[in-house]
Design a protein around this nucleic acid. Sequence first.
DNA 1: GAGTGGTCTAGACCACCAT
DNA 2: TGGTGGTCTAGACCACTCG
Lengths: 236, 236
Amino acid sequence: MQIPLYQIIENEIKEQIQSKKLKEGDLIPSENQLTEIYNVSRMTVRQALNNLVNDGYLYKHKGRGTFVAPRKIEKSIQGVRGFTEEMEGLGKVVSSKVVKFLVLEPSEEIREKLFLKEDEKAIYVERIRYGDKMPILFETLYIPQNLFKDLTAADMEESFYTYIEKEKGYRVSHCVQSIEAQMPKSKHAEMLKINKNMPVLKIIRNTFLNNGRPFEYVISIYRSDQYRFVQYAFKG
Amino acid sequence: MQIPLYQIIENEIKEQIQSKKLKEGDLIPSENQLTEIYNVSRMTVRQALNNLVNDGYLYKHKGRGTFVAPRKIEKSIQGVRGFTEEMEGLGKVVSSKVVKFLVLEPSEEIREKLFLKEDEKAIYVERIRYGDKMPILFETLYIPQNLFKDLTAADMEESFYTYIEKEKGYRVSHCVQSIEAQMPKSKHAEMLKINKNMPVLKIIRNTFLNNGRPFEYVISIYRSDQYRFVQYAFKG
DNA sequence: GAGTGGTCTAGACCACCAT
DNA sequence: TGGTGGTCTAGACCACTCG
């Protein structure tokens, strides 16, 4: 047996959903019917269906049947994503302006966040990021200099995540972040060209590579009228 | 049969992991051994183990055995969590007050979010949630009535997630959520006892069970001075 | 070769749902 | 009441891993 039977069943049902032969909310054949259609045991059918439920294609109703799930949740809005990737996914034109770019002696807190030793430096960047020329985000980044010795201000006008993955060959793995609502500081209101009465979303993120090293500690200030943070999360 | 056999097995293994009787990387008894230990069939053992694998407690190696997974990333900052679990993790005393509890004809939008058919009803709940007696969160929930026919207002004074998992035997799987900053509406300011000039964090969440069905659509309004949303996210 | 997990069968009883 | 999915049994053969 090369391909397991349950996978064949899975693929056929998946194909029928993708080709719209089966639409959202449609009742699919019962487990007993599928047993006869594919000439397999019920447990095999159940394995196929359970996998499709886990993948978000179907949902079950005890006593009623199994149905095609509405809109499969976009995998694209999952987990850790750079701003560029996110905005382009929404069809917006992204641009950035670097306001500050310098190397500094990090504070104790930053050293901890970036796993830096006593004498190691951090790159400090401030930049404004635009979607369709509208300022959406002001961010302050701390980056370990020893990971990015040749990083320039020009690089930061583009996507940092792309730079990391394409230029340096690193792989972004995960992040720890906190999200809160605030009133903007004067500086932030000015940068984002907003009224001081409009709240902002403040996201503080520590992002890691797949080698376990943190490569950025970022404080982001988002315009609340232009940005909602959307994501897909699993139960731990 | 009240509690399924596979869930009993699951719980015992989970308990052994949490109490450190089983450590990271430990080999657990083989499926055949568990069959004898619990005096059940192998398929039942497999169902228990597969659930634990899906939940990240174990991993399998064909031909070698089943092992305890490396320590799960801090439970406290991961993915989908109920408010109760989260607050208790911070050492706070949680309480809730149900403000409204009624059954209603859902709007088209809510029907879509909860996968409801034309004639199916939704339970509508408003509640205020406290940490150490301080109001922190006001939430509006829509819950499919057909999943929770016997749900009472009293149940909602406690943890809904615990009710779902312990009382009903369902399993919370994942959620899709959006997070944004806002100024509070008068009603929200009143409920949370805050000044109208203090921003709030608005989280809209659609949460799913492992049978693929959504069990809640929630709009949460958090006091920004009392709450930061902290989490751990993986690169998709 | 002995043991492991992966796949699969052909039954069974149950709780739930619609009619 | 008849059909659905949820749980469970007691077998079986396979591919993989390790000694």
